[in-house]
Design a protein around this nucleic acid. Structure first.
Length: 478
DNA sequence: CGGTGGGACGATAGCGTCCCACCGGTGCTCTATT
């Protein structure tokens, strides 16, 4: 049994820190007690340490399931910089002979990074099932709930994979998950006894604002005003690639700022360059779709503006959470024109096969692969033995959920009460707000008159205060 | 799914109506051609 002193010693010896950040110790205790653990810790809480530290104490390989190839490569590079050589990204970027080599030498790796799609392949699953695993890590675990059902269905097979790997200790990591999402993650993985380590989603240094704009022209004008006013680094989120690119050009022409558009239509090499330049302060503003953000490790993003309507409060909290990681004052501004919610709904509507479409399919009027964009997700469910009736019911349920999420987002926009209070209540943390009302509802005057943000003290990461290691050492040795 | 913009058409000289095409985000992996 590993005690706290041992964990702390390992932290000192291998990472050079003197204290854990909030949530780390509780998570590590749980992992070392071989408990499945869901850690919901805000961005910047040091989540990678949660599996890198146990690597020094556990025997066997650590598998990390990650949603993006770029994230896996990034993690691999970081581990190599730490001197870890026994690390591999098992992905389609390997040549066939490289992949065969990896699969026949699985035991020689300390860390294996893998996507859910690759992990669900029979040869990979069987290969890994023969290994001694120290830990299974599911990074960005909210993807199970958010992307799994409609977009990347292999996420729904992770429960099966966990069982076929002999149920290793499983660590799920995410920055944002409401209680409902957390329940959904555990349920979809069929994990019943899960330790949850949850820190507040509140980021007191982020000012919350909603600006109503009556037209798209007014919105663009307002955006320009905000971007000129705010200090350098910022991210602007869009739900359209085309408009993201157009506004990027507009801002580049109207200001002296260095602006780039970032979305899935941009070549991956350029996306990589843009991200690097943003990190190195060679770009000021990124006009992005939801493609941008995961794994962004930049601590001085001063603002996140939403030009379009986020699909849910959860995604909104995730996206604005990228601001102000250094604890200094930052802002999250949502620009809203009445009717903006329609685009969010339409995006969901095309993702889910309509009832009419499914009826046509059931009457054999169309084949599954003729269902266009919906074909992939639909054939997945059919291949896994779902009856069409069940699929229709499920998609209807997903559609209703999407509508509820849009309604919740609208309620956030419209509420006259403190935005922060609304947000925290929605995430099951009522009454946990800081004494200061730091949002546009409370600071109407300051916000609307001259955009002067109230000054607050930068927050430092507090030392884990529920553990006095010196006292604990005295108890152990004297 | 649902909103919008453009073209055709009708009945009549300036505009209404209808219909159709188009648009709207996120990524993995595999496979067959260039």
């Amino acid at each position: 049994m590993v005690n706290d002193a041992k964990l702390l010693a390992t932290l000192r010896q291998h990472f050079g820190f003197n204290a854990f950040r909030p949530g780390q110790l509780a998570t590590l205790r749980s992992i070392m007690a071989q408990q499945d653990t869901l850690a919901i810790l805000p961005t910047g809480a040091g989540k990678t340490l949660l599996y890198q530290l146990p690597a020094y104490l556990l025997k066997g390989t650590i598998i990390v399931v990650s949603p993006l190839l770029s994230l896996m490569q990034d993690q691999e590079n970081r581990l190599r910089l730490r001197g870890e050589k026994r690390v591999v990204v098992l992905s389609s970027l390997l040549t066939m002979s490289e992949r065969i080599h990896v699969l026949t030498h699985l035991n020689s790796y300390h860390y294996i990074f893998v996507s859910p799609e690759m992990l669900a392949r029979q040869d990979v699953e069987e290969g890994l099932a023969r290994m001694k695993l120290a830990l299974l890590v599911i990074d960005e675990a909210h993807c199970i709930s958010q992307w799994g059902p409609d977009f990347r269905p292999e996420y729904l097979l992770l429960g099966r994979v966990i069982r076929s790997l002999g149920h290793p200790t499983t660590l799920m990591l995410t920055a944002t998950a409401s209680r409902r999402v957390a329940d959904d993650i555990c349920q979809k993985l069929s994990l019943t006894h899960v330790t949850r380590v949850v820190r507040s989603i509140d980021r007191p240094n982020i000012f919350l604002a909603v600006e109503q704009c009556d037209s798209q022209d007014e919105k663009q004008g307002q955006l320009l005003r905000l971007v000129k006013k705010f200090d350098r680094s910022g991210v602007i989120y869009f739900s359209s690639r085309k408009i993201a690119s157009e506004v990027a050009n507009f801002l580049a022409n109207q200001t002296k700022l260095r602006v780039a558009a970032y979305h899935a239509g941009v070549a991956s090499i350029d996306r990589y360059r843009i991200q690097q330049q943003f990190m190195q302060e060679k770009l000021d503003v990124i006009c992005a779709t939801s493609a941008f953000g995961m794994g962004i490790d930049k601590n001085n993003i001063r603002y996140v503006i939403h030009y379009h309507f986020p699909p849910s409060l959860t995604s909104y909290v995730q996206e604005i959470g990228r601001a102000g990681r250094d604890g200094k004052q930052s802002a999250a501004v949502l620009l809203y024109s009445p009717g903006d919610e329609q685009l969010a709904l339409n995006l969901k509507a095309v993702e889910l096969p309509s009832v009419a479409m499914m009826n046509a399919y059931r009457k054999h009027q169309v084949a599954a692969n003729a269902l266009g964009r919906n074909a992939t997700i639909l054939t997945f469910y059919l291949d896994h033995g779902w009856q069409p009736e069940r699929i229709v019911a499920y998609f209807q349920q997903r559609w209703q959920l999407a509508q509820r999420q849009v309604q919740e987002m609208l309620a956030y926009i419209r509420t006259g009460q403190c935005k922060r209070e609304f947000m925290l209540t929605a995430f099951g943390e009522p009454g946990k707000k800081q004494p200061v009302n730091w949002c546009c509802s409370a600071d109407q005057k300051a916000w609307q008159e001259d955009l002067v943000l109230p000054v607050i003290q930068p927050t430092r990461f507090p030392v884990e205060n529920d553990f006095d290691w010196q006292k604990r050492l005295r108890q152990l040795f004297f």
